[in-house]
């Protein structure tokens, strides 16, 4: 079938895949209530923007992520050349991210927007981790607070979260 289709029904297909593998029904994480909305009070062109991405990005010289519930993170300096960025992940097609890491980690894009004056600057460091961690509790109680602490320490005004 070609032409326009409705959005992919990921929930139904995830359930079907898990069922076909003999797993119990997939349990979706529900984070309630939603976090409250807070605005910076600054114009966008003064924002210091943080970047957090779950696509398994690491920089040359760093230890790569492993693929089995790795809940470590990597600190990547904002001036890291794109040529030094790498991706590893067990659950998405890496062909495009290895050709252009900006598709999962738009660090260079943010640098360009800062140079154009759209935002003030990029946070001193970006943070990356390995998505597909099966323990939602570890993400909620350990990884997410650690990343939040780093963003606060970097004094960013907003943080752009890029999942895969």
């Amino acid at each position: 079938m070609t032409g326009r289709q409705p959005p992919v029904d990921y929930i139904a297909r995830t359930r079907a895949v898990y069922s076909s593998l003999g797993y119990p029904p997939y349990r979706w994480v529900a984070n309630e209530p939603l976090a409250s909305l807070a605005h910076t009070g600054k114009p966008q062109n003064e924002w210091r923007v943080g970047l957090v991405a779950s696509g398994g990005i690491y920089a040359l010289g760093q230890i790569a992520f492993h693929h089995r519930d790795d809940f470590s993170y990597r600190e990547i300096a904002r001036d890291t050349p794109v040529e030094d960025l790498r991706t590893t992940h067990f659950a998405y097609d890496l062909a495009d991210s290895r050709q252009d890491p900006n598709v999962v980690f738009p660090l260079e894009t943010l640098r360009d927007l800062a140079a154009e004056g759209v935002i003030g600057e990029v946070g001193a460091n970006a943070y990356t981790f390995m998505g597909g961690i099966y323990s939602a509790r570890r993400v909620r109680d350990v990884l997410a607070p650690a990343l939040a602490d780093r963003l606060v320490a970097d004094a960013v005004d907003v943080a752009l979260m890029v999942p895969v």
């Binding site: 040359l60 010289g61 693929h67």
Partner: peptide
């Protein structure tokens, strides 16, 4: 892919260039 619990580098050269002390790799 199989979920392996050892570092999975994009290419073999990355493994040889990785700093085993890696101060910007944070283990929780």
């Amino acid at each position: 892919q199989e979920r392996i619990d050892t570092p999975q580098y994009q290419c073999a050269e990355d493994a040889s260039l990785a700093d085993p002390e890696c101060p910007t790799c944070v283990w929780l």
